[in-house]
């Protein structure tokens, strides 16, 4: 038989296998969470904070962790956008594309992107000690912001790079400054990609446990101040899974289900919003 045909066949099989493997593990994860968590999911879980003895199987819910996670990931994402968008714009609009500095920056962000989240947690913790801050919502926000910053910068960088030079030239030719061009033309044109990047960053932020374990602390109350500790869903899952009571372990899976649904709802809402915001993008 033709050698090239055999090659073609082998790679086909490999690709189908890989795709199947990934899809089936995804389905299995979702199924596990669903099967184990759904029986324990109740209105009480999402509307109440833990009551005394919650972690021993008594009543209450994880509203503290749901709200805490939303505050934390939301705050961290906002903070990270505030820093990453200017950096990504700087790399593409302000600096010359051939500059050494730019490629060094890109490399640095890629390396930071690979640093495990516990290291960001530890770094955030060191910063907090330096500033005399205790484990708090603010501390967690800073640690998560640091964690998602490199990926957010690189993801935005990649989409902003795709904005045609001629589009920028068109703006410059009208007498616009780089600042005006970056803000009014480049950002708008890259908005769909930027929103996707933000969404992925938010997902990574809300799902991370290691970066918040020292920095945000944990509490049974809904956070009311940036300087108070805040509970998070990943830590709530972790604590509940560690308790050798079936009821509590079941609730851990229910919490995981809540986290998954939360991300799903936010993604869908963001996509809706982005379709409205991006109808002007030029293809």
């Amino acid at each position: 038989m033709d050698r090239r045909k055999v090659e073609e066949g082998i790679f086909r099989v490999l690709m189908v296998l890989a795709t199947g493997l990934i899809l089936s593990s995804l389905v299995m994860i979702l199924l596990t969470v669903l099967v184990k968590g759904l029986p324990y999911l109740s209105l009480e879980m999402v509307t109440q904070t833990p009551r005394g003895g919650y972690y021993l199987g008594k009543g209450g819910g994880i509203l503290n962790a749901i709200i805490g996670s939303l505050y934390l990931a939301g705050g961290a994402t906002l903070l990270a956008i505030l820093f990453s968008l200017p950096v990504a714009l700087y790399l593409n609009v302000y600096s010359r594309p051939d500059a050494r500095f730019v490629s060094v920056c890109r490399l640095a962000f890629d390396v930071l992107n690979g640093v495990p989240s516990i290291v960001f947690g530890a770094f955030g913790f060191t910063l907090m000690i330096y500033f005399g801050l205790r484990a708090s919502l603010l501390g967690g926000i800073i640690a998560i912001a640091l964690l998602i910053l490199p990926m957010l910068i690189r993801a935005m960088d990649e989409v902003i790079r795709l904005v045609p030079r001629e589009l920028m030239d068109a703006s410059y030719a009208l007498g616009a400054t780089r600042w005006e061009t970056a803000l009014r033309v480049v950002t708008r044109q890259a908005l769909p990609g930027i929103l996707t990047a933000v969404l992925i960053a938010f997902g990574r932020g809300i799902g991370d446990a290691a970066a918040v374990i020292f920095t945000a602390g944990f509490t049974d109350a809904v956070p009311t101040s940036l300087l108070r500790p805040a509970a998070t869903l990943p830590l709530a899952i972790f604590f509940q899974l560690g308790v050798p009571v079936p009821e509590v372990q079941g609730r851990a899976y229910a919490s995981a289900l809540i986290l998954t649904l939360l991300i799903l709802i936010i993604s869908v809402a963001a996509r809706r919003l982005s379709r409205r915001l991006t109808r002007h993008v030029v293809k």
């Binding site: 030719a173 007498g175 708008r188 002007h280 030029v282």
Partner: peptide, 21 residues
């Protein structure tokens, strides 16, 4: 430069409308 560029309208080889209405 912004003052110089204002004096000249530019058309490129392909139209590049800005991403807006």
């Amino acid at each position: 430069v912004t003052h110089i560029r204002r004096k000249m309208g530019l058309l490129l080889q392909r139209p590049y409308p800005l991403p807006m209405s």
